[in-house]
Design a protein around this nucleic acid. Structure first.
Lengths: 206, 206
DNA sequence: AATGACGTACCGACCAGTCGGTATTGTAGG
DNA sequence: CCTACAATACCGACTGGTCGGTACGTCATT
């Protein structure tokens, strides 16, 4: 039989590419290696993807779409801004651990995307960032978060930490991923604690 | 006259390479571009560097040496663990802003170093990390930092944020670099504040 | 017969690194 | 002070190999 059902091969190519890009880097991974790892030939890959960087684009796009969707659910949920922020933070951490390879590729090879595609991805990321920032600002306005540090800075700070996870966390190491999520969320929330050591903690969903 | 004094050309090659690597990435920058930017030819570069990745190695090595030296001065200085930690944090942030290009290259192209050299760099970075962690632990033992989050996690968290600076901070943007340093340090110190909102703040060099 | 899903063969571009050579500077002997 | 020789600093042409991408053929399914 020729031809896999659905887009099975397409998915396999993406999965294989993700792993290889994370292992050796985008530019150090040849198209030949990708297709060999997927058990097909170049013809197959260029049947599904117009260019090598379309693989990158797709990896980025999927990750961002998923995280944005999840964030919007958590941000628009119930509870105080503190509770929602904490839940959203833990969630983005948890899902980041589930997609460490994608994360690795993301922050290592973003610059390899051609201008056009990079702009698209950056716009998507910006949207995500803005949504998160709005949540922080909401808490600041409500007086449950400190307001002496701009929300923008807080978000950059936190996501900086999140995005670097892939550089040090080892799934087979001693630390459980979710435990790290809790620690990180805790550091974020306490760094945000209103003025200092106020009664706000009760509002922060701890 | 042929031959520059001292290692002037060597320095120029490093400077040019740093900028190009930061702009377009290590692999997307050809040796030809580097030497052309420096106004010399390949022969010149391979006279000073055995391989392209030696440029990378040197960039990494220098940055790490400098930061380690500075950290040791701040960590071994006077004052409480809180005061020293804050000073060290602000300093590493300030110097990171002064070397944004190096930082960009560092976390984007580390994987392009051959095994051997990568191991060396990683060892140097580990040493730096350990020194910072010891300072956090000192504060935890002294009871002025919270102890419910492992010092290791705190350090990873903070340096994650620091290392991502180069992905969003723009020197010509509205934010002064040192202002960001203060914000970041503040978020770190407050995230570390002992139990919660205790009197510890007075000890933390705020 | 038309179409989608691949395989095969190949191309042009480029790239890291090499190598033989040259010009200048440093050094030691007479 | 001068000459001989060596070392340093660089040039520029060349190469072996790789890589992304393309053109076209083939075969099963509809």
């Amino acid at each position: 039989m020729t031809g896999e059902s659905g887009g099975a091969l397409r998915e396999r190519l993406l999965a294989v590419a993700t792993r290889l890009f994370a292992e050796k880097g985008f530019e150090a991974t040849s198209v030949q290696e990708i297709v060999e790892s997927a058990g097909v030939t170049k013809g197959a890959m260029y049947h599904y993807f117009a260019a090598k960087d379309d693989l990158l684009f797709e990896i980025y796009h999927r990750l961002l779409m998923m995280q944005t969707r999840r964030l919007e659910q958590f941000a628009g949920g119930e509870g105080t801004a503190g509770e929602r922020l904490r839940a959203a933070a833990v969630d983005v951490l948890d899902t980041s651990f589930l997609h460490l390879d994608e994360l690795t590729v993301f922050f290592r090879s973003m610059h390899m995307l051609p201008q056009e595609k990079r702009k698209t991805i950056r716009a998507e990321r910006r949207r995500y960032h803005e949504r998160f920032r709005a949540l922080v600002e909401e808490g600041q306005t409500a007086g449950i978060f400190r307001a002496d540090v701009p929300a923008d800075i807080v978000v950059q700070f936190f996501f900086g930490a999140v995005h670097q996870l892939s550089t040090w966390y080892r799934p087979n190491g001693p630390l459980a991923a979710h435990q790290v999520s809790e620690y990180y969320a805790s550091l974020l929330m306490d760094g945000l604690a209103s003025p200092h050591g106020s009664v706000a903690e009760a509002w922060m969903g701890r």
